[in-house]
Design a protein around this nucleic acid. Structure first.
Length: 285
DNA sequence: AACGCCGCCTGATCGC
DNA sequence: TGCGATCAGGCGGCGT
């Protein structure tokens, strides 16, 4: 699943590729991903508009565009979210579209493709979701004081609480497990029962795990040659033809039964809030 | 107001 | 072999 690091890496790669590009046409092949914006409204707003900026907020891609309305210029915000299986890439106009291409923006010789197998992602003018997000974990607003205050209010298991985007933005199922492993905390601990030293450790672990993942993702070349060696100029996501670096660097996620890298005990899987949690029963208390 | 639960989706995997 | 059932999971919405 794309979480903060994956989205950050994607944004860094994509931003210079879309900047100053003008949208010639908009094709929506799956209306649900643009909802609640209508297809007509999206086309109206984006056609003729020019990309000015792209940043990440939590797991969201925040595109800024500029369009003309008569003599005046209007700023537009386009919000993208990759859901579980979403991808975004620039491809040559002639390259075949993937089966689940949901939105295609015509940029002239190339196009920006938003593809999402399960259609859980978003590509919309509705920016309401941003107002519900908590602080950026790698930013200054993610203070120890605010973090502990929020945890004190919650009786939920800490693993489940870390998935709450209003607590801190950008952590998903993978990095929740990874951060707890790094902080040596059991995923079952009630959020409000963490001691101050443990909260401090967890905050540091979250930041370290995310920072490392971003650095790692920026270091290892993504698949720059497009899916199935098509002529995509840029492609984000796992490619079955390349080694699975992505999984290799995760310490506990999806490693049930394998020995813990630190102590050798078998990693366990448990279900919390209908999601898999992975942890080391010996290291994490 | 915190929290549990459902629905949304498709593809991989499982059981018979 | 084939096919239906089950599972995975981010997030919004809803009910408690």
């Amino acid at each position: 699943m794309p979480e903060l690091p994956e989205v950050e890496v994607l944004v860094r790669h994509l931003a210079p590729l879309v900047r100053d590009r003008r949208i010639r046409g908009v094709e929506v092949r799956r209306a649900s991903v643009v909802a609640p914006t209508s297809i007509a409204a999206l086309k109206r707003a984006l056609t003729g508009a020019r990309f000015t900026n792209l940043v990440r907020r939590g797991k969201y891609l925040v595109f800024s565009l500029c369009s003309r309305a008569g003599p005046a210029e209007v700023e537009i915000t386009l919000l993208g979210h990759l859901g579980m299986t979403g991808r975004m890439f620039i491809a040559q106009r002639r390259a075949p579209l993937p089966k689940h291409a949901a939105v295609v923006l015509d940029l002239g010789p190339q196009r920006l493709v938003f593809e999402d197998t399960r259609y859980f992602g978003r590509f919309t003018l509705d920016t309401a979701a941003l107002t519900r997000l908590g602080p950026e974990p790698l930013g200054r607003e993610f203070t120890l004081a605010a973090f502990s205050r929020a945890l004190r209010r919650s009786a939920q298991a800490i693993k489940v609480k870390l998935l709450d985007q209003s607590l801190v933005a950008g952590i998903g199922n993978i990095y929740a497990s990874e951060a707890l492993f790094r902080a040596r905390l059991s995923p079952r601990r009630a959020a409000r029962r963490l001691r101050p030293a443990e909260v401090r450790r967890l905050r540091a672990a979250i930041r370290a795990v995310l920072r490392e993942a971003v650095a790692w993702g920026s270091t290892v070349p993504l698949n720059l040659h497009g899916p199935a060696s098509g002529d995509g100029l840029f492609y984000f996501g796992r490619d079955p033809a390349t080694p699975d670096y992505y999984h290799e660097r995760l310490r506990v996620y999806d490693r049930a039964g394998q020995p813990c890298a630190k102590c050798g005990a078998a990693i366990r899987r448990l279900t919390q809030a209908a999601r898999s949690t992975y942890y080391c029963p010996r290291c994490q208390r």
